[in-house]
């Protein structure tokens, strides 16, 4: 029955609403506009790039919200220098 209901639900928009709300309220409660996350991402990339090579395309900064706390979860893939040199000399671009 549950499965049937789900099948006929156009897109389970209630679930979408709930997820949007959880994100929205996390920002509201921290009193930061959602666009600030993109700026934070740039700041982090700039800071870390001073020390190591960062794979900028694949950096991920997310706001994770639990019942009463929020945290930033940051995923920063790095480019190994040796690999990078190898890439340059081989003229390929997909190695990390």
């Amino acid at each position: 029955m549950e499965a049937l209901n789900r099948f006929f639900a156009k897109s389970n928009s209630a679930q979408v609403a709930k997820q949007r709300l959880q994100t929205l309220l996390a920002y509201d409660r921290l009193e930061i506009p959602p666009g600030v996350l993109a700026l934070i991402k740039d700041d982090i990339v700039a800071a870390i790039s001073r020390r190591v090579s960062v794979d900028c395309e694949h950096v991920n900064v997310n706001l994770l919200h639990e019942q009463n706390s929020s945290k930033l979860v940051v995923d920063i893939p790095l480019i190994a220098n040796r690999g990078a040199r190898a890439v340059r000399s081989a003229g390929r671009s997909n190695a990390r």
Binding site: N5, A9, N12, A14, N68
Partner: peptide, 18 residues
């Protein structure tokens, strides 16, 4: 509509707002 999952349920709202 809640049953068809087109509308936020009471439980959803309670959880989101604690």
């Amino acid at each position: 509509r809640v049953k068809r999952q087109e509308m936020l349920s009471v439980e959803d709202i309670k959880e989101v707002l604690s």
